[in-house]
Amino acid sequence: MALVYEEAKGKIIEFINSKAKSKSKFYFNDFTALFPDEKGRDVKKILTQMVNEEILVFWSSGSTTMYGLTGAGKHADGED
């Protein structure tokens, strides 16, 4: 089954919102788990498009990277 962008996008946003109370950043694996029948590479294409549409942003610890909704999450004063 090929992924339909709009459907997949909706599912991803819904998932992120469902967790909004506890966290705002997610590992790539959290999203592949949403689409157990799809290849990781196809899920990545969806996420890349969502980044390009400014729906998602990357968050990086330097060693690991996570995805979150644009503008969501907590960060310390003085940070952008």
Partner: peptide, 24 residues
């Protein structure tokens, strides 16, 4: 130094490491 995670260039998930000083 403090770490800060939300920096980067548009569309890329790496290549930039965020740093802030704690005595600005």
């Amino acid at each position: 130094w403090k770490h800060g995670g939300i920096v980067g260039v548009f569309g890329y998930g790496g290549g930039v490491i965020g740093r802030y000083c704690d005595q600005p």
